[in-house]
């Protein structure tokens, strides 16, 4: 009976195939094919967001380590630390993970190739929208034999997102938002980031509409003047006055500055795609509709 259940679970995942000898073949979000000798029982995240994803779905005993920056949930702090920049291959080998989870853009592909040479397959996820994060949670559930837990979680999260969306469904005049990731040079959240999707759910829009090659493009002062956002996300008005507008006094002409609509997001919520994406939406909602 358990075997039947296992096979049934495998068949749920279109990206996963089980061969006769028990070897599992997976396809990750980058389209890479991974071969696992058995169902993974020991997993290691190599990105802070991935740690949050795994903690939300997996049995915590199966998570064998964390990166130096992983700090959520608090219990993760008791796990052994593995350096992810540069990657400490020996530390990873010592922890004997069956599978390493990471996200696109955090772990270079050559690191994955090296780890696979050492017998440790690496599964990449990538997210372009809030829905992608939920799908990511479900994929982890299927791989880790925790589909039910993942489903409960994503159902609840999707319901909350639907409620938030409904609150702003009738918005006619969409507020424009600019969020920065770095002040000198000025780097911003571009069009092809989850941030854009979060704003869409909240009945507003990313002021950066042009699609750049990079998810976080650099902008000039002139282009920001031209975009003239209604809302500026990147710090409290006091911090921004001291560290941003002193440096770029020309930008005091933008609407967000003139109307004092500048907000300081919780860094981890903005930056990490993970199960706390709804918390991030609720925080942004407070900024957009004070």
């Amino acid at each position: 009976m358990p075997l039947c259940l296992l096979l049934a679970l495998f068949s749920c995942n279109p990206n996963e195939k089980s061969t006769e000898k028990g070897i599992i073949i997976l396809k990750d979000d980058l389209g890479r094919t991974l071969t696992l000798k058995r169902k993974p029982e020991r997993v290691l995240p190599l990105a802070t967001s991935m740690t949050e994803m795994l903690y939300a779905v997996c049995d915590t005993a199966s998570i064998v380590g964390r990166t130096p920056n992983c700090d959520y949930p608090a219990t993760v702090l008791s796990k052994p630390v593995v350096n992810n920049y540069p990657v400490d291959y020996e530390a990873i080998l010592r922890l004997k993970p069956d599978l390493v989870f990471t996200t696109e853009g955090i772990t270079p592909l050559e690191v994955a190739v090296r780890l696979e040479e050492l017998g440790i397959p690496v599964y990449y996820q990538k997210y372009g929208s809030v829905e992608d994060v939920f799908r990511g949670l479900e994929d982890i559930g299927k791989i880790m034999n925790r589909s039910q837990q993942a489903k409960y979680l994503t159902d609840s999260l999707r319901q909350q997102v639907t409620k938030i969306k409904e609150r702003h469904a009738g918005t006619t005049k969409l507020q424009t938002v600019l969020a920065i990731t770095w002040k000198d040079p000025i780097y911003v959240y571009g069009q092809n980031t989850i941030f854009t999707d979060k704003l869409k759910i909240l009945g507003s829009q990313n002021v950066v509409k042009q699609v750049y090659d990079q998810p976080y493009p650099a902008l000039t002062r002139e282009s920001i003047l031209q975009l003239d956002p209604d809302i500026f996300i990147g710090g409290t008005p006091e911090e921004l006055e001291k560290e941003f507008f002193t440096m770029y006094p020309e930008l005091r002409k933008i609407k967000a500055y003139r109307t004092k609509r500048m907000y300081d997001p919780t860094g981890n919520l903005m930056e990490r795609p993970g199960p706390r994406v709804v918390e991030s939406l609720l925080e942004l909602e407070k900024f957009l509709y004070p």
């Binding site: 920056n69 990731t181 770095w182 002040k183 000198d184 040079p185 780097y187 650099a218 000039t220 002062r221 440096m247 006094p249 020309e250």
Partner: peptide, 22 residues
């Protein structure tokens, strides 16, 4: 360095930019 942003600052500084002109 613990952040990608800092690296970008270093790159822009070491290769030069006139974007800060005033």
């Amino acid at each position: 360095s613990d952040s990608e942003g800092k690296l970008k600052s270093v790159i822009f500084w070491s290769m030069g930019s006139f974007e800060r002109a005033s």
